[in-house]
Simulated scan of single mutants.
Amino acid sequence: MLPDLVQYLWIGWLVLAVVFVIIELLTLEFTFLMLAAGTLIGGLGVNLLGGEWWLQVLAAAGVAALLLFTIRPLLLRALHRSSQHIPTNVDALTGMSARVVGAFTDGDGAVKLDNGETWTARLADASASVAPGQRVTVTAVRGATVVVAPEEGTPA
């Protein structure tokens, strides 16, 4: 009975590789892709060359381990290199310039951001004074209010 199972072991290697690829599609971390490659190259390769079943298992484990520790880190580094953080929504407002459109009273006023939106604003330094038309920079966002500071080199 054992010789019959060993004779069709190549089917097991193919099924195992397909299972690993399906799991990789769900995880997207290149771990199961390396295991699938080890299964195909090591296990199925040695099987097709006529190697014993224990040699097939050792070859599959060895190739998978080699790929996991050499190729996978390179792939992950290449994948994450292109994914730089791009601020969006409210995070993109910090550092944006604006023009004062409403007079500041007690540190509160209104500004029109460079993206065209008008926001309620609060001065970062309540003792500073800004006049309508003056340029300011957004330093933070607090709810529906932006915290602003006069731009460097802008007359007060």
Rank of each mutant, 00 (worst) to 15 (best):
L66N: 00
A98F: 03
R135A: 07
T31F: 13
F32E: 09
A37E: 10
W10Y: 03
R142P: 01
G102D: 15
V136D: 06
V146R: 02
L93W: 12
M34H: 02
A124E: 13
L49A: 12
A103K: 10
L93I: 13
S127Q: 07
G50T: 08
N89D: 13
T139W: 00
T139L: 11
D91K: 14
R122Y: 07
A92W: 12
T139Y: 03
L76P: 03
T145H: 02
L25Q: 12
T120F: 09
G143W: 06
V19S: 00
L123D: 10
G42Y: 08
A60T: 04
L74M: 15
Q7K: 09
T139F: 02
L35K: 08
L33T: 07
G43A: 12
L66K: 00
L16W: 05
G51P: 04
W13Y: 06
G95T: 15
R142M: 07
L49S: 10
T88D: 10
F30H: 05
G45N: 03
F104E: 03
A121Q: 02
V146W: 01
R72K: 14
S129C: 01
A126W: 07
A78T: 13
F20Q: 00
A64E: 08
G116C: 10
R77M: 04
Q56M: 12
I71Q: 00
L67S: 00
T145P: 04
L93K: 14
V100A: 05
L76E: 10
G109I: 11
A121I: 11
L79Y: 15
